[in-house]
Design a binder for these strands. Structure first.
Lengths: 394, 394
DNA sequence: TCACGTTTGTTAGTAAACCTTACGAACAAA
DNA sequence: TTTGTTCGTAAGGTTTACTAACAAACGTGA
């Protein structure tokens, strides 16, 4: 055994981790620490609002000196402003309040996920929608769709005279971290370098993500939880996932693509993808409305039939979510989409199914709720993406 | 609208992120950067084996000067040693090879997840099992089980004269990040502060984790992928999950507890938890072996009946995994447990089911394979946990 | 009223970390 | 022997955040 150890000590390489790509995290220089602390100050101000340098120092654990230094940098960049002295009467020298200059920048948010229309907005740093615009899609695909998106951005940029921090775009399909839309069948896109194209045209920072992955960022902002699943139901069904506060991309950048997962063991409607009983065949808006329309006008039986259809859809959603909730031990799942469809029997059935199919002991404080962001979820998520990418504010 | 902006700029706090706990990441001081870079050097040496300081510098991006400085520290601590000059003939001054001192430390790994026995091992830094020991459980629960585990650790410590880097323990049940076993029904544990107790008794660093969550660390070491799901089938069924190279704990520390997720929409055997058709009722070893024993001795029909049983179990596994694989876009799923049950029809059926229930386009390079770690997966995973916790080597 | 304590933000100096530049040692190849 | 290369170290500079100290500005209470 001694010989074995000796051999290991002279020629051995690790058995653990031998083949993996090296350096999961790179070197860290003092300047990186500085960048991090700068973002920390910004984050503190952004979340907690106006306060003194001393307050920030206490909150972050850095010293007043360091905070003053960092704040001076941030003020020079126009990101932070002084608001004058604090008014409440306390002993000691009056504090000078500082805050993120919330009026200094606007963000352009774009949502390409709807079937009929590309929607966009000028968004404030706090997430307020300041102005909106949209362009009808008219079935545009390929290059035409790219140009249409650019037209929308151009029109939005014309609607604000405030400096723009960046452009955030939520696109359907699979989007890689460099903002290349690898595949978006609805728009006829494959390997469209949307981020590069838009950035080149407008000379602004651009961030692109999958619509559901972007949407979950907006939801994360108004949630207490750091583990969060958003199910976005529209023309298709997609999901966005945040785990430990970090967005999940997936090994093939296709995290959240649950629309074509088969539900249950009793078949189901034929899907466009060729399989039977995909989640989309139960939940996608066109399918649901068609099914509801079919039973409408059945007189008294209509209401009950509607409920049955919606309840069954909710049950199917619960069936798919149960393994995900169990495996990730999620505490919060959010539903986004047309409220008249989702909020009611569908929602109730999903909650009920989820409870019946998971272990109550582990998922006691699980919440499945409707989104409060309504139709702006992707727009606001896109803004959060820019905020996070440009300022490090999460 | 101008008034709205002004208001936001003077009194506003962020709508995004207003209620979330502050400071997801704390301040970073230069010394933290140093610690990080130290771990980076260690990681580089550990993964790539003996090399010169200049090699490490090139690999990490730090300068030779800094590497020399960091290596001096590491050598002073006994973690790194010089191995003499490189032998191959090259121009220039011959390099002095350095490496992690792989014989300097041993690790104690303990696996409490088996029903009949607590197993443990002395593990080398490279993951070699150097010596083993075990204690029969004899149905011990509660305090007796804790003492039994301590006896095992004591006996293992007596079997090595090399300094011990730390003790890693894989326990069944829900384990929180502080090493408190919140709940482990099989061992009759609830809120047992295992980490503190063992650390206090042996005065060594101790890390405790759920068995499957620990097991996936071992599997991660020998895998190329940074997203990985381990399904561990034994007396129960559990999973361990790594996403973006980071272990997932879950909001209630119960990530991976998929044993009691209901499978399919056609009922199933009654489970101890009260539900019908939990994953465990299809896959847990006792259930499977009992079902196989029931058809044994049916002559010619036995082989075919066995296959059917195993295939059905595999299918059920595939059904549960499909939504998880879809939502996370996983590229690798690993099966661990008794090979005579898992490796064969069960495995095949699981792969088949998974392919049929997910979107081929997104999960093209998905692999579902058997673990190669056999019964040592938790022991070795526990060692990785210590390695990671003490040295920052992943 | 006035001394005292408190709080804020700044100045000055220090320690830590990494960098660049430079150099000697040791080797291969021409 | 000369030349060019590579390695490891030494010296000095820059960045970063810290501690210590202080002035300014404010309540409080004798």
């Amino acid at each position: 055994m001694a010989a074995e150890l000796l051999a290991a000590s002279t020629t051995g390489t690790a058995i653990f981790g031998r083949s993996r790509a090296l350096r999961p995290t790179g070197k860290v220089l003092p300047e990186h620490a500085r960048t991090h602390n700068r973002a920390l100050v910004l984050q503190t101000l952004y979340s907690a609002g106006p306060q003194s340098r001393a307050d920030v120092a206490r909150e972050t654990g850095l010293t007043r000196v360091t905070i003053s230094d960092l704040v001076a940098d941030l003020m020079a960049e126009g990101l932070v402003i002084e608001l004058g002295q604090r008014e409440d009467a306390r002993p000691g020298k009056p504090a000078t309040l500082i805050d993120v200059d919330r009026a200094a920048f606007h963000i352009i948010g774009v949502d390409l996920s709807e079937h009929e229309v590309f929607r966009g907005a000028v968004v404030g740093l706090d997430g307020q929608i300041i102005d909106r615009d949209e362009v009808a899609r008219d079935g545009a695909t390929g290059e035409a769709a790219v140009l249409l998106a650019e037209v929308l951005v151009e029109r939005l940029l014309a609607r604000t005279s405030t400096p723009v921090l960046g452009i955030g775009i939520g696109s359907p399909g699979v989007v890689d971290p460099r903002g290349v839309v690898r595949s978006a069948p609805n728009l006829g896109w494959s390997d469209v370098a949307l981020q590069d194209r838009v950035a080149a045209r407008f000379a602004l920072p651009v961030h692109v993500g999958n619509d559901a992955n972007v949407g979950v960022l907006a939801e994360h902002g108004s949630s207490d939880h750091d583990d969060l699943l958003l199910v976005k139901i529209g023309h298709g069904v997609g999901a966005g996932l945040i785990i430990c506060g970090r967005p999940v991309i997936g090994s093939g950048f296709a995290a959240g693509e649950i629309g074509h997962v088969v539900v249950g063991t009793d078949g189901g409607p034929r899907c466009a993808c060729g399989k039977d009983g995909c989640l989309e065949t139960w939940l996608a808006e066109p399918r649901l409305t068609a099914r509801l329309a079919a039973v409408d006008g059945q007189g008294d039986a209509a209401a009950s039939a509607r409920d049955d259809i919606l309840r069954e859809a909710g049950r199917r959603l619960g069936i798919v979510l149960a393994p995900v909730v169990g495996a990730l031990n999620l505490s919060e799942v959010v539903l986004s989409g047309p409220a008249q469809l989702l909020d009611g029997p569908l929602h109730e059935a999903a909650v009920d199914t989820l409870r019946k199919r998971t272990m109550a002991e582990f998922n006691r404080d699980l919440r499945l709720r409707m989104s409060e962001q309504a139709e702006d979820i992707v727009l606001r998520g896109a803004a959060v993406m820019v905020l996070s990418g440009q300022l490090g504010v999460t």
